[in-house]
Simulated scan of single mutants.
Amino acid sequence: MDLSQITEALQRDAVWVVFLNVLLQQAGLPVPAVPTLLVAGSLAASPAQAAAMLAAAVLASLLADAAWYAGGRFFGYRVLTGLCRLSINPDSCVTQTEARFQRWGLWSLVIAKFVPGFSTVAPPIAGSLRMRLPGFLLAAAAGAALWAGGAIVVGWLLRDELQDALLTMSRHGRTMAVAGGLALALWLAWKLWQRYRFMKLAAIPHVTPLELIEAMASDAPPLFLDLRGPAMIASTAPIAFATRADVENLLQSVGDWPRQAPIVTMCACPGDATAVRAAHVLTELGYTAVRPLKGGYEAWLAANGQT
């Protein structure tokens, strides 16, 4: 939906258009809501109408967030892993997302709407960590109100400029469409290039869970590095003989481990992304026998009959 179509629809039924647009975006679909909110603010005829738009946006956002929260509550980190699998560049998606949540706590839900890519994944993390529902809803509502309210207020303050911009775009619609399409193509090409680079990095020898089980029972077991985030480990279970690690501080986790001795890295992320990255980092540091665990944490659970 382009801005001229948004304008026409908003003039007919602003509250429902805002509600539907925000609901679709917060559900995870690539439907940007900020342009709608800006135009809605510029077209608001009264404070009461603007308040109704804001209420619709907050309600839509809360409905989507509550659904993701329930998914995280009942299905745990599988929901987050599934969301990250949809990413064009999955490298460290789960770990980075959890790190933000750990750093900001409840405030992460307030600022989530302002962080690209974080808005959809924050609620399932809150659910998987068993955050209390009243606190979750309060923080999510506050974040939605700040995000949507800010866009509506900016739209109202810049209503003359926005209307002029919409008029210009309607006069030069084909040129704007070509420019937008070109920008989208360049962005997509960059993301695909990042994915291609990751796939090249991921094309290294892996170890299967069964091979790891056999190796751990041998006289010379490998160093097993668990790269899952602390919140995920707490919400599932630690692995008794694994060493907690993160990519930024690998040397601290490795300690005085011999550089020729085997090391296995494991994560809970699409494409074993974090485990692959850690294996490359350790290899560059001089460790000669580092391999990621194929299939990550879920494959490890399956091999041990825990799924």
Rank of each mutant, 00 (worst) to 15 (best):
A141P: 04
M216F: 03
A279C: 01
V153W: 13
K294N: 12
V281W: 07
G180F: 05
G76V: 11
K113R: 15
A60L: 08
A139P: 04
V290S: 05
I204F: 07
A112V: 05
V34Q: 15
A165D: 06
A183Q: 02
P292L: 04
V15K: 05
G76K: 12
W187E: 14
L188D: 14
S218A: 02
P30T: 09
A151M: 13
L210R: 07
A179R: 08
R291T: 12
L86V: 02
R103M: 09
V247I: 11
G127R: 06
P209A: 00
P35W: 13
C267I: 07
G286V: 14
G286Y: 10
R171S: 04
A273R: 02
A64F: 11
L3P: 10
L223V: 05
V276M: 00
R195F: 03
A148C: 04
Y69A: 03
G76E: 11
T36M: 12
L223N: 04
V154M: 15
T274D: 00
R100T: 03
G150T: 08
A179E: 02
Q306A: 08
G76C: 13
L251E: 11
L166P: 10
L80I: 13
P30D: 01
A51K: 08
R103D: 13
G181S: 10
G82V: 14
F241H: 10
V18D: 02
L227H: 12
P292M: 08
E211F: 07
A202Q: 01
A50Q: 15
R130H: 06
S218C: 01
N249F: 08
L285Q: 15
E284W: 09
L38V: 09
V79K: 13
K200L: 04
G117D: 03
G105T: 02
A215W: 10
L106V: 11
L212Q: 06
Q252Y: 01
V178Q: 07
W300E: 05
A202G: 00
L227C: 02
A231H: 04
L54N: 04
G149I: 12
G117W: 03
A40Q: 04
M232I: 14
L137E: 02
L192W: 13
L86K: 07
T120H: 09
V247M: 00
A141C: 02
A165T: 03
V15M: 03
K200W: 00
G181L: 04
